[in-house]
């Protein structure tokens, strides 16, 4: 279960679209812990990218 697959799975969860095939693959993983950690990491990335975007918009206008 390489890290890249976990990132792909969490990203598709954020978008809310996932194919049956990928889901079966993702569920081969034996524990949900990496998914949760990567999920939290991606939420932080989501927050900081939004903060950056907001500062950029304020600077722009």
């Amino acid at each position: 279960m390489n890290i890249w697959k976990v990132f792909k799975a969490v990203f598709s969860a954020f978008i809310g679209v996932q194919s049956e095939k990928n889901r079966l693959e993702d569920f081969q993983a034996n524990s949900p812990i990496p998914f949760i950690l990567v999920g939290i990491l991606m939420v932080l990335i989501f927050i900081f990218s939004l903060v950056y975007l907001v500062n950029f918009m304020v600077y722009l206008m």
């Binding site: 978008i15 809310g16 679209v17 996932q18 194919s19 049956e20």
Partner: peptide
Amino acid sequence: HENTTVELIWT
């Protein structure tokens, strides 16, 4: 029961 392209579009 599945069509990811349609789902991607309506997302």
